[in-house]
Design a protein around this nucleic acid. Structure first.
Length: 254
DNA sequence: AGCACA
């Protein structure tokens, strides 16, 4: 009995993720991807860009193939900014890993030669380091991979449920909610006051009001639109209210 | 839909 392979591509340190919501600012997406994927192991880098050809996709570069494989299995179809992530192994080796294992060769710049210009052709870049099935370097600083249980706890996602009905798992996971003009502020110091918070949040255009929830160290902050809310979120994420207390911001649930 | 590396 042969089972359906996880991927039609050979395992790779890098995962290729697409079907990402390209309405979301790429930096925001990268940050959220990191939060979600880091639960499976060390991440070297995440590459995502917003150009026409590259939007909606990201490359997650892991330190260990096993981590990539676990993430691939567990997060397949994970609802991320309201779209199920589609995950595969990357086709080729990332530059970052080629650099690390010494096989990196400078990528030829796309130079258009005059003759080719006439013919309407562009210089064909020779493929760089080949996509050899990530020769897993055994000696690698390996941070213990958190159990699958832990990520389910953190993001409220049970991979089993995707098999039959990925859409049914619409539960908005923590930290990956869809954009909203209202922000949810957590981890406030108990000394926080409305005035204090408006000072902070009114620096960002579109500010409307802040609602501190008594006794919960939590507040809601309204902006005129979700874009402005997003800007404020980026600007104030992790803001140190006191040396030991840092704000945690997300979009409020709808 | 789209496999990049600024």
């Amino acid at each position: 009995m042969s089972r359906k392979p996880l991927s039609d591509l050979p395992p790779n340190l890098t995962l290729y993720v697409n079907n990402l919501n390209d309405k979301i600012n790429v930096e925001t997406v990268k940050k959220s991807l990191r939060e979600v994927f880091a639960a499976f192991g060390g991440i070297t880098d995440i590459v995502a860009m917003k150009s026409l050809k590259r939007r909606g996709q990201a490359w997650i570069i892991f330190k260990e193939v096993s981590a990539a494989t676990n993430a691939l299995k567990s997060l397949q179809g994970f609802p991320f900014y309201n779209k199920p992530m589609r995950i595969n192994y990357a086709k080729t080796k990332s530059d970052a890993v080629a650099k690390a294992d010494g096989t990196y060769v400078e990528r030829p710049k796309k130079i258009v030669k005059r003759e080719d210009l006439r013919k309407g052709k562009t210089a064909t870049p020779a493929p760089a380091a080949s996509a050899a099935p990530a020769a897993a370097k055994p000696a690698e600083a390996s941070k213990p991979t958190p159990s699958q249980k832990s990520i389910q706890d953190r993001i409220g996602w049970n991979p089993q449920q995707t098999v039959t009905a990925p859409k049914a798992v619409a539960a908005k996971p923590t930290g990956v909610t869809e954009p909203n003009k209202t922000l949810f502020v957590e981890n406030l110091p108990s000394e926080a006051t409305d005035t204090m918070l408006s000072m902070l949040f009114r620096q960002y255009p579109g500010f409307q009001e802040v609602r501190l929830i008594p006794g919960r160290n939590v507040a809601f902050v309204d902006y005129q639109n979700e874009y402005q809310a997003g800007m404020a979120m980026q600007g104030l994420q992790g803001f140190a209210m006191t040396p030991e207390v840092k704000l945690s911001l997300s979009y409020a649930r709808k």
